[in-house]
Design a protein around this nucleic acid. Structure first.
Length: 581
RNA sequence: GCCCUGGUAGCUCAGCUGGAUAGAGCGUCCCCCUCCUAAGGGGAAGGUCGCAGGUUCGACUCCUGCUCAGGGCACCA
């Protein structure tokens, strides 16, 4: 609808140009906005004010000219000039009502758009290290990423969701050692556990399972091990333990212990995400980048193009030449590649797999990383503008006023699974999405759990359930309802609340496009609140199941359309649309 | 010190690529179930949009400086 108005204005401007009232301009953006106040009509444009200067006339005069040259249209009732030079457009009644036909016709696909033009798009999110279960911080990234992906799909992008599995690197070695030590304890050895090992209970579970499968296969003489405990520096100690563990067990056995931990935790993560309604198309292994020599290929390529130099025994990438604060290490003094090196290879892989739009969703604490990744893409000639990095701020959990502290290493944190079990999937997904992602989120479990009007999830779901309830009562009250019949005469929908609802419904496709392009799922939440509010208000003032056939039918199709749009939106967010509550 | 993010009603937050009297929920006060779920609706009070400049027809929105809060500045991930 808005686009049609835009088109009318564009044509008028063309006429004005040919009459030389307006100078010929190249592309101008004609902004048309939804009027906030119905006294200002349905749409308004500021174009006359924007062009007044180049037209060398005053805005109101120009507005008058634009209106005069507006082509005939059967959607417009009238136009008005208002304020400093706004043009307000009033639509004909039947124009509003046609949206119902559109919605029922498209059903679940109402709101689909093709602005994405099937662009191959990769959304990578969560990507938590498989060193422990997902906690509430990961939950926000999971919910946010899933909805961004859903939005992009609906907007016509060809989307794949990927989880990057950090199955290489020191943290994973620490995990393996943690498992091994618990295993030794389980086998009866009297050894203490290092402070910076992973202490969660799940490590014990893995150790026990390891023992069940392999019995005493990984047991070694404790004396040498115990001598390592004299080291006072905790970080150094854990590195020594890793070294000792790999040497003592040998490559093959070490891998068995390592994989036992990795696979167990990865399974937990996968299960948690499935239960949370978050699906990934691919699980991309960091180790595969090393094994397939993609990391070395990248580094070689960088060296060839003189992006690398040696200093203090390490290999450095000249990222400061490409907008980063300083140069970054690729290969450490000890010969190991850094996480950053794998990440360069990973992004090369993303591009090589044909993705035109690459979206990384990271926790806000990684923001310092953006410049170096973009720099590396540029150095490899990979068009860094393809990469879009979205940051998600942290979430803090509250129980009413009480702030729940969480410390990650100690293993005392609330997991996503626990949160979901207590609060429920719908409320959890909704609350995570409710705030703008760059806004810190205070997640109040008490509010999320409350089945009251304070809780926006129930408020919206209730609107859907209420509509279903009305339909259940049609036969009870002795009425019948046929959609084809009802669609024949929508002209009786003339109440201000009905017109309001129709225009909110018509706005939906635009909400999708805006939310998708801005990567802002919270826009869906605010839209739903508006729609639900308008519906509840309508429900309170207007009876649906009444004797007048025309009005009853028209009102029933209207609320069917509302139901459809609520359902479409909730499903994008990953929240169910209950038929009764 | 440098870099991000935020500072809007008592509280939690929206505010679309700058636009016509700044919005919602909660909280406070008042009102509405002989009627399709009151898990609902209506109304009132409540704001120098952190501070100071600037850009222009017009700024919560853009620019500069300052200030407060959170986060980041590793041969860790």
């Amino acid at each position: 609808m808005k686009k049609q108005v835009q088109e009318l204005i564009a044509q008028s401007l063309k006429s004005l140009e040919s009459k030389e009232i307006l100078p010929t301009t190249e592309q101008i953006n004609i902004t048309v906005e939804n009027s906030r106040d119905s006294a200002h009509g349905d749409f308004a444009t500021n174009i006359a004010m924007v062009l007044a200067k180049v037209a060398k006339t005053n805005p109101r005069q120009l507005a008058q000219n634009i209106i005069e040259y507006l082509p005939e249209s059967d959607i417009l009732e009238k136009t008005e000039i208002a304020g400093p030079g706004f043009i307000n457009f009033f639509l004909k009644q039947n124009t509003h009502q046609s949206v119902i036909i559109d919605i029922l016709d498209k059903g679940d696909n109402y709101g689909d758009s093709n602005i994405g033009n099937n662009t191959p798009t990769l959304v990578e999110f969560v990507s938590a290290n498989p060193t422990g279960p997902l906690h509430i911080g990961h939950g926000r990234g999971a919910a946010y990423g899933a909805v961004v992906a859903n939005l992009l799909k609906k907007a016509g992008y060809d989307v794949s969701c990927e989880y990057y599995v950090n199955d290489a690197g020191r943290q994973m070695d620490i995990l393996a050692v943690s498992v091994w030590l618990r295993y030794l304890q389980h086998c009866g050895q009297d050894i203490s556990f290092p402070e910076n090992g992973y202490k969660g209970d799940y490590i014990n579970d893995i150790a026990i399972a390891l023992h069940l499968e392999h019995a005493d296969k990984f047991v070694t003489v404790p004396e040498k091990l115990l001598s390592l405990y004299n080291e006072e520096d905790a970080e150094l100690k854990i590195d020594m333990l890793i070294k000792y563990c790999t040497e003592e067990l040998g490559k093959e056995n070490y891998r068995l212990v390592f994989d036992a931990g990795l696979n167990h935790i990865l399974e937990t993560i996968k299960t948690d995400l499935v239960n949370f309604g978050v699906k990934f198309d691919t699980w991309f292994s960091e180790r595969s980048l090393v094994d397939d020599d993609i990391v070395t290929t990248c580094i070689t390529k960088l060296i060839e193009n003189d992006w690398v130099y040696e200093k203090d025994g390490a290999q450095w990438f000249r990222s400061s030449k490409l907008g980063d604060e300083k140069d970054r290490v690729l290969i450490r003094e000890n010969g190991q590649a850094t996480y950053f090196a794998s990440d360069i290879a990973y992004h090369l892989s993303k591009v090589e797999r044909g993705f035109e739009k690459i979206i990384d969703i990271w926790g806000a604490d990684h923001h310092g990383y953006i410049a170096r990744v973009k720099a590396s893409m540029q150095a490899l000639g990979l068009a860094p503008e393809k990469l879009e990095i979205l940051l998600v701020q942290f979430a803090t959990l509250y129980r009413g006023k009480e702030r729940l502290q969480m410390s990650t290493r100690s293993g005392e944190f609330i997991t996503l699974e626990e949160l979901q079990n207590e609060v429920g999937k719908d409320a959890t997904r909704f609350f995570y999405i409710m705030r703008k992602s760059e806004q810190h989120l205070d997640f109040d479990m008490e509010l999320a759990k409350s089945q009251s009007n304070d809780n926006p999830v129930y408020y919206i779901q209730y609107a859907h359930a209420r509509i279903c309830s009305v339909f259940r009562q049609i036969p009870e009250k002795g009425y019948t309802y046929k959609q084809e019949e009802a669609l024949k005469d929508l002209s009786v929908l003339t109440e201000p609340q009905e017109i309001k609802l129709l225009s909110v419904l018509a706005r939906y496709p635009e909400v999708i496009e805006n939310a998708a392009q801005a990567y802002e799922p919270h826009q869906l939440v605010y839209y739903l609140k508006d729609l639900a509010n308008d519906f509840h208000s309508y429900y309170n003032t207007s009876q649906f199941l009444i004797d007048n056939n025309e009005i009853r039918n028209a009102r029933l199709v209207l609320i069917v359309a509302i139901k459809q749009v609520i359902k479409n939106t909730l499903s994008l967010i990953g929240v169910s649309s209950p038929e009764e509550m």
